[in-house]
Computed example of a mutant assay.
Amino acid sequence: MITMNDIIQDGHPTLREVAKEVPLPASEEDKKILHSLLEYVKNSQDPEIAAKYGLRSGIGLAAPQINVSKRMIGVHVTDEKGKLYSYALFNPKIISHSVEKTYLTGGEGCLSVDQDIPGFVPRYARITVKGTTLEGEEVKIRLKGLPAVVFQHEIDHLDGIMFYDYINKENPFQEPENAFPYER
């Protein structure tokens, strides 16, 4: 089980590396790592388990955040209609996206960044992601709203990009061009 001690913090070199593709079919070790990413985000959202193990609540976690430079993410998030998006994916890729952008009005946070970094993070409003599940099935997922933002945040980790890299340095709360606000 992953704990907060396993999550590396901002400044660690692994967070800035481009992670390697996972050879498929995945090894048992890679399957175990991927499963533990999803397990962490699920556990972190359960108040009893989170309190017992001192887990900081999260909705997504990428393998580089536990110092494993491989293309794997776990996401467990609901959209504004209450639909659950719970995925553990090998080699996730954004295969298409909207021209229109969005941003979370409250900004973004990250389990690897302890301090609050205020500012708007422009993201695509709608994306389609392709990846491979733990069972080895290739999936294509259409996303919008919060789930789309979360998948982009986690996939960025696989490319060594941090959310605050997108924040306008001169004016952090300047509305991104061609973007609409998303209230969480």
Rank of each mutant, 00 (worst) to 15 (best):
G136H: 03
Y124H: 07
T133L: 14
E108P: 04
F120T: 00
R142V: 09
K144M: 15
V149E: 13
F120E: 00
K101H: 04
V149K: 07
G136C: 11
E100S: 06
V99L: 14
R123H: 07
G136E: 07
V129W: 02
Y103R: 02
R142G: 12
K140F: 03
G109E: 06
E138Y: 05
L104H: 00
C110V: 05
L111D: 08
I127M: 14
D116F: 03
G119R: 01
A125G: 01
T105M: 14
G119S: 03
G131I: 02
P147I: 06
P147Q: 12
Q115D: 08
H97T: 01
D114I: 07
G131L: 11
T102L: 07
I117A: 04
S96V: 08
S98G: 03
T132Y: 05
G145T: 08
R123S: 02
Q115A: 12
T105A: 09
L104E: 04
S96M: 11
K101T: 04
L143Y: 02
G131Q: 08
V113W: 03
A125S: 13
V99F: 08
V99R: 13
A125H: 01
V139Y: 11
L146I: 15
E137P: 05
Y124A: 10
V149S: 09
L134G: 00
A148I: 07
K101C: 05
V121F: 08
T102Q: 13
K130R: 15
G107E: 03
K144G: 15
V121P: 04
T133S: 14
T128W: 10
V149W: 13
V149G: 09
R126S: 06
E100C: 08
R126P: 01
T128L: 13
T102Y: 05
V139F: 07
L134I: 02
P118D: 09
V121D: 06
V113Y: 13
G119Q: 00
P118S: 09
G131A: 06
E135R: 11
I117E: 01
G109A: 06
G107H: 03
E137K: 12
A148T: 09
L111E: 05
G131K: 01
D116R: 00
E100A: 13
K101Q: 13
G145C: 15
A125C: 04
V113D: 09
K144F: 15
L104N: 03
D116H: 05
V129N: 01
L143F: 09
K101W: 10
E108W: 09
T132D: 06
Y103T: 01
V139A: 06
I117W: 11
P118H: 08
S96G: 04
K130E: 15
A148W: 01
V139I: 14
F120A: 03
G106K: 10
Y124W: 15
R126C: 04
E137T: 03
E138F: 11
E137G: 05
